[in-house]
Amino acid sequence: MRDKKYLERLSIQFPTAADAATEIINLSSALYLPKGTEHFITDIHGEYEPFLHILKNGSGSIRKKIEEEFKGSLSMKEKKSLATLIYYPEQKLAQIESTEEDLDDWYKTTIYRLVRVNRRIASKYTRSRVRKELPRDYAYIIEELLSEKEEVEDKEAYYNGIISAIISTKRARHFVIAFCNLIQRLAVDRIHILGDLFDRGPGAHIILDTLLGFDNVDFQWGNHDICWMGAASGSLACIAS
């Protein structure tokens, strides 16, 4: 059989007919969802800070989702502040915690806003895909906040109870950071590196380590990358260049 080697490989990942059928159903349903955001990035040249900023803001897609979700309900300053929080949660929280008088109320409002942004971004994915990206420590809590509980009569009280518990147990800061990182990851479905990741800048290794944390990444090596790989392999010509 011509395709036997492919079937053998697939049988490792999907050992039973039920496993294979479930994956087929998931993939088929995904065809009817909106297309995810794809990054096409080239000529990075080891400049890791601009590269990481592009990843954090989803090449502008996160700000766009904030605009769509809160159009007319938040001021430009509030939307900008929320976007900055999502991009750089640790730094923004340090600033907020030093200036905000009622921190518990701020956390409550902010978590609600993050839930709304995350729901909008996650709408282009299947639940199984979103579930794979959830941070382990808060997976159950985030899934509850993102899901629509039709069977719950008083939804506001239900969600208020979850958020109040997060705040009262002193986990709000960690939760917000995890939530912001989740939004960053869901904002981009696939990353395409179109050559020249290496050379010039000091942080190609940081970029590679970051990309290893993403599932959907593909590379097209450029001449600078080939030269670096040749140098690492001991080519004197590549080392000299």
Rank of each mutant, 00 (worst) to 15 (best):
E97H: 07
E97C: 10
E100M: 13
E101H: 09
D102F: 05
D102I: 09
D104C: 08
W106R: 14
Y107K: 02
K108L: 07
T109W: 07
R113W: 01
R113T: 00
L114K: 00
V117P: 01
N118P: 01
I121T: 08
K124L: 08
Y125E: 02
T126S: 13
R127S: 06
K132N: 09
K132Q: 10
E133S: 13
L134D: 03
A139K: 11
E143Y: 06
E144T: 00
E148D: 06
K149L: 08
E151S: 12
D154A: 08
K155A: 03
E156P: 07
E156M: 10
Y158M: 09
Y158P: 08
Y158Q: 04
Y158V: 00
G161W: 05
G161M: 12
I163G: 01
I163K: 05
S164C: 10
I166Q: 01
I167L: 02
S168N: 15
A172Q: 14
R173G: 02
R173T: 12
N181Y: 07
L182K: 13
I183G: 00
I183V: 12
R185V: 02
D189G: 04
D189K: 15
I191Q: 06
I191A: 03
L194V: 11
D196E: 10
D196T: 13
L197W: 06
F198A: 13
F198P: 04
D199A: 10
R200W: 03
R200D: 04
G203V: 11
A204F: 09
H205C: 10
I206P: 04
L211A: 04
V217Q: 07
F219M: 11
F219P: 04
H224Y: 06
H224Q: 09
D225G: 08
I226Y: 06
I226E: 14
A232I: 12
A232S: 14
G234E: 11
G234N: 12
